[in-house]
């Protein structure tokens, strides 16, 4: 019956996409390296660079308003408070590997871990 064919194609489509995505995720995870600095961007511009080996706390201002607070502790960076309602950046937790990032879309604040030599 035609219906069976359709179901089969659906499953093949979904399986292929999932396998490809899982493979990409695996590659990203296997090649990850710990970074050395948390770079903060606001409104598409570099705002501050926070070395991960120094414990610190910084209040990030975006559009002249207090937007987020970034904490660096034990080699990891996390956002401890945010002015936006959804708190997605706070819930992201802490990051320490190269290219890992915390994104706060409402405040246009992005924190990316980079590696400096």
């Amino acid at each position: 019956m035609v219906k069976k064919e359709v179901v089969k194609r659906d499953i093949i489509l979904i399986a292929c996409v999932l396998i490809a995505a899982l493979a990409a995720l695996l590659i990203i995870n296997l090649t990850k390296q710990s970074g050395t600095v948390a770079v903060i961007y606001t409104n598409n511009e570099e705002y501050a660079r926070m070395p991960l080996d120094v414990d610190a706390e910084i209040v990030i201002y975006s559009d002249g308003k207090e937007a987020n607070t970034l904490v660096v502790q034990n080699g990891k960076a996390y956002i401890s408070s945010a002015s936006c309602p959804d708190k997605i950046c706070v819930n992201t937790g802490s990051i320490s590997n190269e290219n890992e990032m915390i994104v706060c879309l409402p405040n246009k604040v992005i924190v990316v871990i980079e590696k400096e030599n």
């Binding site: 995505a21 879309l105 246009k108």
Partner: peptide
């Protein structure tokens, strides 16, 4: 955000 690095989220989003 003008940040192409967000593309790292693609696998998770897919």
């Amino acid at each position: 955000t003008q940040t192409p690095k967000i593309a790292y989220y693609i696998p998770v989003l897919v």
